[in-house]
Design a protein around this nucleic acid. Sequence first.
DNA 1: TTTTATTGATTGACGAGTCAATAAAGAACA
DNA 2: TGTTCTTTATTGACTCGTCAATCAATAAAA
Lengths: 194, 194
Amino acid sequence: MPKLGMEPIRRAALVKATIDEIGAAGNLDVTVSSIAKRAGMSSALAHHYFGGKEQIFLAAMRHTLAIYAAEVRLALGQAQGHRARLEAIVRAGFTSSNFQPDVIAAWLNFYVLAQTSEDAHRLLQLYQRRLHSNLVHDLRPLIGTGADQAAARIAALIDGYYLRQGLARDAAERSDATRQVLAFLEIELKGRVQ
Amino acid sequence: MPKLGMEPIRRAALVKATIDEIGAAGNLDVTVSSIAKRAGMSSALAHHYFGGKEQIFLAAMRHTLAIYAAEVRLALGQAQGHRARLEAIVRAGFTSSNFQPDVIAAWLNFYVLAQTSEDAHRLLQLYQRRLHSNLVHDLRPLIGTGADQAAARIAALIDGYYLRQGLARDAAERSDATRQVLAFLEIELKGRVQ
DNA sequence: TTTTATTGATTGACGAGTCAATAAAGAACA
DNA sequence: TGTTCTTTATTGACTCGTCAATCAATAAAA
């Protein structure tokens, strides 16, 4: 019973199923069939709408990135002042939604894919540039020269902590990433060399 | 012409070939056959010596980690004083040998594997703990309380920068990671909050 | 009747792991 | 010394399974 206008619905379902499937597997060794089954359709339909496996992956990655970007935007919208905005950026990166196993899996595999896929790399660069420019925007008024370098350090620290937290198993391994990055921000702001 | 005592030679060749193959592919989608061919033997022999694919991977990861550990040890051995030792640790993480594409590929895929493989996770923890304790050892005498936290930040920063540098394509994207991390170290040492 | 939705069946390829067979090196032994 | 046995090295061939992608066919809407 072909209802028209199914395409966006099917695509969304496939994207969702892809993220879930990658999360369950931990890697990109997931079949189009398993994704399609999880999304409640045949694999032929998945191919019909996306063309191939890699395109399905990329759509899933774009979706993950978009959610993160929206979270950052929201947090920034509610923050008052440079300092609060910086904190908002940091906090947005470490919300519990970002530590869902499937989101972590998406990011890690995203990094792997970025080595060889031009599209994935471009997407990653987009994320990195956005983060960097967000940080610089509110660091510059506070510390002027060196804001660029400080932003680079903070961005790398966010990524580094995310990686560690994401791969931590038990509570003992885990630390309060937000607090640590904020402490670092504190140091960058107050403990300027010079 | 079965010369005896081939096992260690074959194993080493397979480990080397595995790293090369993963480097060439960028991911773990490499076949035992391709690895064996690169190492100059049949796939059956690879199975004979390692049992299965995952064990070959783990051996390759262990090898990569061992090389890194040796580099750190060497650098530490030549450094005089706490400050110099800290710098040595940082520098060791960013030597050009660590930025060979195949080494980067090994690390990224290692992270992916650490999500699901108990062995890989254990190995990763080993690396993280060693780095942390190395840092604390020389931070404590310099800054006392808070050395633990500072070490955690520096370790995360190293990982974060490595990730960024490893995934950078052109020189424009790349920055001097060593200098940045050392600048941060400087801030941690001199710009103590309290 | 043209467009959109949908799938079962098929194709063509590849891959992990097994196994039986071959061969050489050393050990035991007569 | 020559003979037989055991261990180690090595591979071609094979099994069994999987999977991406295609296609022809069905069906409902416009």
